[in-house]
């Protein structure tokens, strides 16, 4: 199996936020600045990759009927680990993310990848699938966070990048701004996706 293809699909074709529209809650809630968005993205990337590997290992011994509780227990364990590690080594980020860190347990994308991919595939493909999906998620969070922070406050990671006279619309920092930014980005990704599939079709014909 082509590992590169498995890894790559999470970044654009099946981007968790913009294409699958899963886990929109963190994309709305913690993207008001780049630091939080990226921290959240990396935390999810770690959880999703580790969870895919563990699920792939144990899948032979999991009864179909109780697979969801088993998945959730595994995810909760990994999230607890992440939480404790962040609290120990990055207390600032831990404080900023607050409740959303614990909420990673119920992010749709993590359970979805366990169910759709890791349950049916071996350890190595599952690892790449988790890594690709996690990367796609983290990049999407970074994109939303960058747009909101740069145009909302005129700064990037806290460093001013736009002139001091820039008086950005506060709404980008607030929740409605997040909805608008994500909605418009989903639209943009759909346009690009259509364009790409048209290109691919032309290549196929030629």
């Amino acid at each position: 199996m082509n590992y590169w293809a498995i890894f790559k699909k999470g970044i654009f074709d099946q981007n968790p936020i913009f294409r699958l529209a899963l886990s929109l809650c963190p994309a709305l809630a913690v993207t008001s600045n780049v630091f939080n968005a990226l921290g959240m993205g990396l935390a999810v990337m770690f959880v999703i990759t580790a969870n895919n590997v563990v699920v792939s290992i144990v899948r032979r011994w999991v009864n179909q009927k109780v697979r969801v509780p088993v998945f959730i227990t595994i995810i909760a364990t990994i999230v607890t680990l992440t939480q404790l590690m962040l609290e120990a080594f990055l207390p600032a980020l831990y404080k900023e993310l607050g409740i959303y860190l614990a909420l990673i347990v119920v992010f749709a994308i993590i359970l979805a990848r366990a169910e759709v991919f890791a349950m049916k595939n071996g350890i190595v493909p599952s690892f790449f699938d988790g890594l690709g999906m996690g990367t796609g998620f983290a990049l999407a969070m970074l994109l939303v966070g960058t747009i909101r922070e740069v145009f909302g406050t005129g700064a990037f990671l806290g460093f001013p990048v736009l002139p001091a006279s820039y008086n950005g619309p506060l709404i980008l920092i607030l929740a409605p701004g997040a909805f608008m930014v994500i909605g418009l980005l989903i639209g943009l990704f759909n346009v690009i996706g259509e364009y790409r599939s048209k290109l691919a079709a032309q290549r196929g014909e030629a």
Binding site: N167, G168, L170, I171, L172, L174, P176, G177
Partner: peptide
């Protein structure tokens, strides 16, 4: 509404 939220 957007303006009011943006520049109160």
């Amino acid at each position: 509404a957007v303006l009011l939220a943006s520049w109160p």
